[in-house]
Design a protein around this nucleic acid. Structure first.
Length: 599
DNA sequence: GTAGGGTTAG
């Protein structure tokens, strides 16, 4: 079926052209086309096709429903539901699609209602409910459902155990496994579950618990058990214990080797990583990639590139690793050259590649190149939220606010909090305070929960505009309505907006009452305010704090000196000059402001 | 061509 092939290659328009040309189209042809639109979340076109279909089978209905329910937003969910209600004969897939649609949108009550009236359930149904409960923070009911299941498979157990681990309910996960043990006669499933637990404990940094289970597994350990335990040690940075276990192993697989190598990379022990790499009989792409990424993380791009050049079978991940390495190490030119080479060698970029490149465009404010990458994004990738967010950030950093807004609007069906943050931050950093705050209000009306990052932009927008009452009230709302602990950045903006309006004493008071250590942005904001409003006493306090934080910077000295000079307090001014000489501070030419973080 | 999940490296 060439239509399917084209769709898989992202060539939806070609697929449509072929579809239109076909003279004998059966229901499967129609469904393939429909599935293409659904995959790309092109709901309007999908629906048009669906309505035009001469004959629909149950798959057509299911496809259309799944299109609706996998798009965020209650409207789509209801649209899917009404199709579901219209259906004459529903199969397992119809029910399960609808149920998991509710579950993914956090509507477990609706999911439960459907579940209850579903005449016959299969494993998928139960698992959908279990993961639904887990993702919505109801681990208790997830476990209950698991226990109530008439027939469990290994997937149900894995889903529950790994979900519980993700949620941090490790003890409950262990209980479930122990419980399952009693009724389980398949040894492999049990080892599997134990391994999941060990890995889970390892992921959460509970090495002692991982070790306890590992020792408990006297009955049978397989390679994965060892690998999981090694991973736990490696995760905790305990490479000597990891090594001890690794040396004990009789038959190691590539995962064992690679876990060790990446563990060494993780603790920046490139010498050990490379040594092991050379001892390996059959290093695979992953081993190479670990070494490359290790050197990249260490900033040694020449070495990273050496390994990249000689590695035999470069995977897409290898290209992505080296490109991301250059991106992180400000080698923008090299990254772009490699990208060109990659394409010349016929390797197609994926979302990781494009995301690195978009970061480069954002960092270097290269809108022209950014637009080229944007083209590629729309051409070869199903537009998804993370990439759209990178696009929004890229345009915003380039100062192309209206382009950023266009992408933001196009994203709206799959919008997540990061998109909102990117757009609000874009407005805020370009001085569009009104737009930033307006967007923040509509974000709330869409019931999207703001994060601490949202509030950094919101507060900085208030600071920019001198909206002191709004700033204070947003700060309060952040804590009281959303339960977000204020971070130092929030305090910096609060001090900035309060101080800027002349309430310098109150700004000082805020600093005194901060539960966390103020940083240079906080003190800088206060110092800036003191300078503008001529409060030499508090300026001295702020400047002295800054001197402690940044002993080599001349800014605070100069500012304080100028303030004393303006007030004709010559003996104080002279004291500052002496302090500068004593601490060997060089006055930079034309430097009369503190630094950009206070402006 | 449609639904859940699929233990260890990245």
């Amino acid at each position: 079926m060439p239509i399917t092939e084209m769709i898989r290659g992202g060539r939806i328009e070609d697929a449509r052209a072929l579809f239109d040309k076909l003279s004998n189209r059966n229901t499967i042809t129609w469904n393939s086309m429909l599935s293409g639109y659904v995959q790309r979340r092109e709901l309007a076109r999908a629906r048009k096709l669906f309505d035009e279909m001469p004959k629909k089978d149950v798959v057509s209905w299911n496809l259309m429903i799944s299109g609706y329910v996998s798009c965020r937003g209650w409207r789509h969910l209801e649209e899917g539901r009404s199709l579901f209600d219209e259906m004459h004969e529903r199969d397992f897939v119809s029910w399960n699609t609808m149920i998991s649609g509710y579950a993914k949108n956090g509507r477990m009550d609706d999911a439960l209602r459907l579940f209850d009236c579903m005449p016959e359930k299969n494993v998928v149904t139960w698992n959908a409910m279990i993961t639904g409960f887990l993702n919505n923070g109801d681990a208790k009911r997830a476990s209950d459902f698991f226990k109530r299941m008439p027939r469990r498979d290994a997937a149900s157990l894995s889903a529950l155990v790994s979900g519980l681990i993700q949620n941090g309910d490790l003890d409950e996960a262990e209980n479930v496994v122990l419980e399952y043990m009693k009724t389980c006669d398949r040894k492999e499933d049990l080892i599997h579950a134990y391994n999941t637990l060990i890995a889970g404990y390892g992921q959460k940094g509970r090495v002692a618990d991982a070790q306890r289970l590992f020792n408990q597994m006297g009955f049978e350990k397989n390679v994965v058990s060892y690998n999981s335990m090694i991973m736990s040690y490696a995760k905790a940075g305990d490479m000597s214990s990891a090594r001890e276990l690794f040396d004990q192993m009789n038959d190691r697989d590539n995962v064992s080797w690679n876990t060790m190598i990446s563990g060494y990379v993780h603790v920046s022990d490139m010498k050990a990583a490379v040594k092991l790499f050379y001892e390996m009989a059959t290093p695979d792409a992953l081993s190479w990639n670990s070494i490359i990424s290790g050197f990249a993380q260490a900033g040694k791009m020449e070495l990273a590139l050496d390994y990249f050049q000689i590695m035999p079978q470069k995977s897409l991940v290898s290209w992505n690793t080296i490109i991301a390495g250059y991106e992180k190490n400000a080698g923008f030119k090299e990254a772009i050259e490699l990208f060109v080479r990659m394409q010349a060698e016929g390797v197609k970029p994926d979302r990781h590649t494009l995301s690195s490149l978009l970061s480069i465009c954002a960092e270097s404010a290269d809108q022209h190149f950014g637009m080229q990458i944007h083209q590629l994004v729309t051409k070869i990738i199903i537009p998804d939220s993370p990439l759209n967010n990178s696009l929004i950030t890229m345009y915003a950093r380039c100062g192309a606010i209206s382009e950023a807004r266009t992408v933001f609007e196009e994203t709206k069906f799959r919008i997540d909090v990061i998109s909102w943050n990117a757009m609000i931050g874009g407005y805020a950093s370009h001085g569009f305070a009104k737009e930033a705050l307006g967007l923040f209000e509509s974000m709330k009306s869409f019931k999207v929960r703001p994060t601490y990052i949202t509030f950094i932009s919101v507060l900085s927008a208030c600071a920019h505009r001198g909206l002191v009452e709004e700033g204070k009230s947003y700060f309060k709302s952040m804590i009281c309505d959303f339960g977000i602990e204020p971070r130092v950045e929030h305090f910096a903006s609060l001090v900035d907006v309060v101080g800027r309006c002349g309430q310098v004493e109150e700004a000082m008071d805020i600093i005194h009452r901060m539960p966390i250590e103020p940083d240079k942005a906080v003190w800088g904001a206060l110092l800036g305010a003191c300078r503008v409003h001529g409060n030499a006493e508090l300026a001295r306090v702020a400047a002295e704090a800054l001197m402690r934080l940044e002993p080599e910077s001349s800014g605070p000295y100069v500012l304080l000196y100028n303030m004393y000079a303006d007030a004709e307090r010559w003996s104080d001014a002279d004291e500052i000059r002496v302090m500068m000489e004593k601490n060997n501070i060089k006055k930079e030419r034309g430097y009369s402001r503190v630094d950009s973080s206070c402006s």
